[in-house]
Design a protein around this nucleic acid. Structure first.
Lengths: 205, 205
DNA sequence: GTCTATAGGTCGATAGAC
DNA sequence: GTCTATCGACCTATAGAC
């Protein structure tokens, strides 16, 4: 009685799991949880549907594992905001990193957006245990910077919300942005310049 | 050959169509197009499924009509930005109006967000014909204001994006915001103060 | 490949308004 | 009596799972 995921995963297992996760990311991020089908994921992965279910316990299992895995890399930029760095530099670097992620990982951004939009049915606990403590630590750091006069005083929580909103917008609302900005123009480049100005003016004491 | 929706709509028809649209908004905005079911909509509306289909041609028809109807009210605040008004006042009033809509019509916001996230499959034409011309008119107005030295110079298109992103965030990512901000606090009130500061500092010449 | 549940959609019969 | 509105039962395709 050998379970697929138990013991040491073989080369092939590792490779196939990776392939399936990537295919699932592609499909889930484009069609949402309910809109995605195992058939689509199987086709995208170049594997049969039963083969997919050999590696994962079901559709929901794939989705949950995707979210778990992505949570880490998603929080990483905020984690890296250094309390001992120069405040404005740190914030702007964070904005730039988030924007870079929007450019490089738009599928991940849309996957999260989809999940949150629907009320985070499969991610509620993760928000509480993963995001919330980090959010509180970092907003405290920012508040301290403001108290010390190193940054202009605003509500640090809304500051972070506005950084998330403005950066992720270019991935999540890409379909709209593409309609409104002429093709060929590098939208994210323009956003970087704009957002740098926005947050510099806001936070300069 | 009499279609249900042809000719003069009776009292009952008007009433039931309204009830169904509202139920559909509730369900579609919570579960997305694919995640919503006619049974859910029927139950929410307090009508039978065949009765729903007596008034609409099908699931997609309901969704399309919802989007069409909402498009107008959605663009209304931007439409009302007055080229002859005082520039900063007009922009801040627009921000406030958008935030007010987020508070009053979060379901509508999520319905749009869902649709755009999935690549606007049922709204592409509307973006081109409805949103795009308006967007170009209004960004031109803002650019003129900047040229005349009445506002600080930034890319007006990204300015509008950032207004959309920051205001709609509170409806679309509500599930996340609720986790991060203590219950009982009026989040949108705090957002209003913050966003007023943000855009005032950005745009004051 | 097969089984099963579900979800979109149809039909025909009935109830109610004018 | 006719037309509008309503609904239970049914059909079919699809999608998750084994």
């Amino acid at each position: 009685m050998t379970e697929a995921s138990a013991r040491k995963p073989s080369r092939i297992q590792q490779r196939n799991r990776k392939i399936i996760m990537d295919a699932a990311l592609e499909v889930f991020s484009r069609y949402g949880y309910r809109g995605a089908t195992l058939d689509q994921i199987a086709e995208q992965a170049g594997l049969s549907k039963p083969n997919i279910l050999y590696y994962f316990d079901g559709k929901e299992d794939i989705h949950v594992q995707l979210l778990n895995q992505l949570m880490e890399s998603w929080l990483d930029p905020l984690e890296h905001m250094d309390p001992d760095g120069e405040p404005l530099t740190e914030i702007l670097a964070y904005v730039r990193r988030k924007l870079e992620m929007t450019r490089e990982f738009p599928r991940e951004s849309r996957l999260f957006a989809n999940e949150i939009l629907q009320g985070a049915p499969r991610m509620g606990p993760h928000l509480e245990s993963g995001l919330k403590p980090l959010f509180e630590r970092k907003t405290t750091v920012i508040r301290d910077w403001m108290t010390q006069g190193k940054l202009a005083k605003v509500d640090p929580r809304h500051l972070v919300f506005s950084i998330w909103a403005t950066t992720q917008h270019y991935a999540d609302f890409d379909a709209q942005v593409q309609v409104l900005i002429p093709a060929g123009e590098d939208v994210v480049d323009g956003a970087e310049t704009y957002l740098e100005t926005l947050f510099t003016k806001l936070l300069t004491p």
